[in-house]
Amino acid sequence: MPELRDASADDFAVILELNDAEVQQTSPMDLERLEFLHRLSSFHQVALVDGRVAGFLLAMREGAAYPNDNYDWFRSRYRQFIYIDRIVVGAEFAGQRVGSTLYQALFARARTEGISMITCEYNLEPPNPASAAFHARFGFTEVGRQQVAGGSKLVSLQRLELAG
């Protein structure tokens, strides 16, 4: 089982490498952007496997000063939520429950804070069937779709209502 801890600046180089490897499914992120997102985040954890950073999850609460089309979509519709900006797991760690462990930790934090709604999106175009299947296993449902990145991506906007 992966070990989790809060992300720190010492992890940023590996986080950027992980993100770059999956940039088609996430979005570009340089050090300046990562530092900005880290400051906005209400949850930014890394998962360690054998002492190595295997993945990360970065999320923020409603009310963050985050200029992002997908975040804005949720902000305009829901009063209280946690928005998953990105989760990335290194390819060599696939199948080791890294993503699931990160999600379970986020859900536990949300419950502790009295937040029942988790939001996120994944690509429909270009397709990301692995993310679609991953989110379906947790019970996320589509609540909308929108074109982003200058029309180069179509995303499925997803919501999960956590049980108490």
Rank of each mutant, 00 (worst) to 15 (best):
G63W: 08
G63Y: 07
A64H: 12
A65D: 15
A65Y: 06
A65G: 07
P67G: 07
P67R: 10
N68C: 12
D69W: 01
N70Y: 01
Y71V: 04
Y71T: 04
Y71Q: 07
D72M: 08
D72K: 03
D72T: 09
W73R: 04
W73S: 05
W73A: 11
F74L: 10
R75D: 15
R75K: 13
R75T: 12
S76W: 02
R77E: 09
R77S: 08
Y78G: 01
R79N: 13
R79D: 15
Q80S: 14
Q80F: 05
F81R: 00
F81H: 02
I82Y: 12
Y83Q: 00
Y83S: 00
I84T: 14
I84A: 06
I84R: 04
D85W: 06
D85Y: 07
D85M: 07
R86F: 05
R86S: 14
I87T: 15
I87Q: 13
V88F: 05
V88T: 13
V88K: 03
V88G: 05
V89M: 11
G90L: 03
G90R: 04
A91C: 06
E92S: 11
E92Y: 03
E92A: 11
F93Y: 15
F93L: 02
A94R: 13
A94T: 03
G95I: 02
Q96S: 05
R97T: 05
V98R: 02
V98E: 05
S100K: 06
S100Y: 01
T101A: 13
T101W: 08
L102S: 12
Y103P: 00
Y103H: 07
Y103G: 00
Q104V: 01
A105Y: 09
A105L: 08
L106S: 10
F107L: 08
F107A: 05
A108L: 08
R109Q: 15
R111S: 02
R111V: 01
E113M: 07
E113A: 10
I115Y: 11
I115S: 10
I115W: 13
S116E: 15
M117A: 02
I118T: 01
T119K: 00
T119Q: 01
